[in-house]
């Protein structure tokens, strides 16, 4: 074996070793690396003693209500299986609308309503001009 082959082998073995180690670390922290849980998973945690956590889902169409003259809003977050009622006081992001993916931070109150302290809009990876979007909507 030439010295440079030894060095190449050394690098490869080290890289593989560290990759395995990092894979193990990341997979054992899987739950903490998830930025949010779905409404179905959130429902299971409803009776737990809670600290703040995040739920991500779609704003159910027709569920959005805002108290006139205030920043207080109410909407339902759904993943198509379960849904969670959310209460939030504050300014909503530009992309907030019904049918949109949203991430809320907060916890459940005694009425099983999720009291959000932060609302973030999740953007999807699709980009298109308005006319093409309208076309897609009408064909689907």
């Amino acid at each position: 074996m030439l010295p440079r082959h030894k060095r190449l082998l050394g690098i490869l073995v080290t890289l593989i070793g560290v990759t395995v180690a990092i894979t193990l670390i990341l997979s054992s922290f899987q739950d903490n690396l998830l930025y949010y849980v779905t409404p179905s998973e959130a429902i299971k945690k409803i009776d737990d003693d809670q600290s703040k956590f995040r739920i991500g889902g779609l704003v159910e169409v027709g569920s959005f209500k805002r108290k006139d003259g205030s920043l207080q809003s109410r909407f339902v977050l759904t993943d198509g299986i379960e849904s969670v009622e959310v209460n939030y006081i504050g300014i909503l992001p530009d992309l907030f609308r019904e049918g949109q993916g949203i991430i809320v931070t907060g916890k459940f109150d005694k009425m099983k309503i999720f009291i959000a302290t932060e609302v973030l809009a999740k953007h999807d990876e699709n980009y298109m001009p308005p006319d093409i979007h309208a076309l897609k909507e009408s064909t689907s």
């Binding site: 909503l92 999740k122 953007h123």
Partner: peptide, 8 residues
Amino acid sequence: PMWGTAWV
């Protein structure tokens, strides 16, 4: 402006 936060 889009998400509502600069950093998470």
